[in-house]
Design a protein around this nucleic acid. Structure first.
Length: 445
RNA sequence: GUGGUUGUAGCUCAAUGGCAGAGUGACGGAUUGUGGUUCCGUUGGUUGCGGGUUCAAAUCCCGUCAGCCACCCCA
């Protein structure tokens, strides 16, 4: 052996050891079940796309964060690692036009790569979890995504959260109302988006620094703070905005959404219309939404919106599309902080450890393990090259948090029984080989 | 990309220019058919890496790498 290399990972990349993977799988499986419940179906696309597929879609700043990929002996097809799941979706929809039935409801849970500087809850490799509806122009699709988001977060056990809903058209109208020139709208949005973080005064200050007139800023900020519960806030803002067709269209869409959400049974405690919600991505064209946890400052745990023009980048005619993305990395961290994982998720998938007394009883233990597996019990058969010390085997079970230990020595074998001990409280019972699996289920509760 | 901060045993941390330590873990024993609790013992280190200052550096200085935090941006 030559001198070993120090084991390390590329910046912003992570390993997930089994204990962590069990939690991640729980979250992902729970989300997948709800996707199925709403009739979304899985899609998988490659990790690598052609460079030309990704470039020119995200804007100049974001483009610098795309990982490019090389193959040693060929530069014929420049490649890049996928940056999100939305552009690949757009490519798929355009590429398989004849095979895809509209409306197309797909979900995808997969890693994406961004060359950003890592921070808490922010990595260079992270999982995105997207559900999109392609081919539906009306607001029933957007409302269904809100219902889906609420159902997932409730199923995961989050006690208090709010989906904040706004509309890009309304933001456009607000820009017009306050007299901000079109080319400054992105700046305006960026500042408005920080409303929660820096407050009304902070936003005012930033807008003035960006060269927007005092008068415009005051009008804008007053408008943003329009409050009211549910539809009331829409009524309030409509009175002010009735001269701006874009804004009125946006308000109409939000009303339509509210109607659909009501029919879907989404309780109004889980959403609100918030005119300071912006979303960073430039391609949104209609309703936008993001979810925040009440009393947490970690940022949003889901986000999404309508992007009716994106698919047109790969296709002669675009298709109306709306989608939601769940921030599962943040969700997974928060589940830990808030202790939302069910008890059975922690530690191991193993339900029982079958111990081995010694060489002469090894075959009996092995057969027992086979029987238990046949009966559907997750079974670990102890393995060790050294002396089969029973204490060591119990220690192993304890460390791995395996709930039950089965022992059979010469005495038990002679009587045709097996002893099963529950480590949590020390309960130990005897069972015949035939009834062992049933007794194990009982002890597991 | 900009600014700040931290880096010492497997892990959590102490040692503020003068012998590198504790807790916890790991391993062994008390207990050769029973873990977790208790007691005894053993094991623990290129102080991230490279250079400099000094009689003397974990400690001060420079560089570098990595983590974290804030900004930018975003999930």
């Amino acid at each position: 052996m030559s001198a070993s290399i120090k084991p390390r990972l590329p910046k912003g990349f992570r390993d997930f050891l089994p204990e962590t993977m069990l939690k991640r799988d729980y979250v992902i499986n729970t989300i997948r079940e709800v996707f199925h419940l709403y009739g979304f179906e899985p899609l998988q696309t490659p990790v690598l796309e052609l460079r030309e597929t990704l470039f020119g879609k995200y804007g100049e700043d974001a483009e610098q964060l795309i990982f490019e990929a090389q193959h040693g002996r060929s530069d014929k097809d420049p490649l890049a690692m996928r940056y999100d799941l939305t552009v690949p979706l757009a490519r798929v929809v355009a590429q398989y036009e004849n095979d895809i039935k509209l409306p197309f409801k797909r979900y995808q849970i997969a890693p994406v790569w961004r060359g950003e500087r890592p921070q808490r809850g922010r990595y260079r490799e992270f999982f995105q979890c997207d559900a999109d509806i392609v081919g539906v122009a009306n607001m029933s699709a957007d409302a269904e995504l809100i219902s889906l988001t609420v159902a997932i977060l409730r199923k995961l056990g989050f006690p208090a959260f709010t989906v904040k809903i706004n509309n890009r058209k309304l933001l456009t109208g607000m820009g017009q109302y306050s007299g901000v020139p079109d080319e400054q709208l992105p700046d305006l949005y960026r500042s408005v988006d920080k409303f929660d973080k820096i407050g009304a005064d902070g936003v005012k200050k930033e807008l003035i620094e960006r060269g927007i007139s005092d008068d415009s800023v005051s009008r804008m900020v007053a408008l943003l703070q329009t409050h009211g519960t549910g539809l009331e806030s829409l009524d309030n803002i409509e009175d002010v905005m009735d001269r701006f067709p874009a804004a009125m269209e946006g308000i109409r869409e939000l009303r339509e959404m509210a109607q659909h959400m009501d029919n879907l049974g989404v309780s109004s405690e889980f959403y609100e219309f918030d005119f300071t919600t912006v979303r960073g991505l430039g391609y949104y064209t209609g309703p936008i939404f993001e979810t925040i946890l009440k009393g947490e400052t970690i940022g949003s745990i889901s986000g999404g919106g309508r992007y009716n023009d994106l698919i047109g980048m790969f296709r002669r005619e675009s298709l109306p599309t709306t989608g939601v993305s769940l921030g599962i990395e943040r969700i997974i961290d928060l589940m830990d902080d808030m202790k939302l994982y069910p008890a059975h998720i922690s530690g191991t998938v193993v339900q029982v450890l079958v111990t081995i007394f010694g060489e002469e009883t090894q075959s009996a233990s092995t057969k027992l393990a086979a029987e238990l597996r046949q009966a559907g019990i997750n079974t670990e058969l102890y393995m060790d090259d050294g002396k089969m010390k029973l204490g060591k085997q119990f220690t192993h079970a304890d460390k791995k948090r395996i709930p039950l230990v089965a022992t059979l020595g010469a005495d038990e074998i002679a009587q045709g029984i097996v002893k099963i001990k529950r480590l949590s409280d020390g309960t130990e019972i005897s069972a015949t080989r035939a009834e062992a699996a049933a007794k194990i289920r009982e002890l597991l509760g």
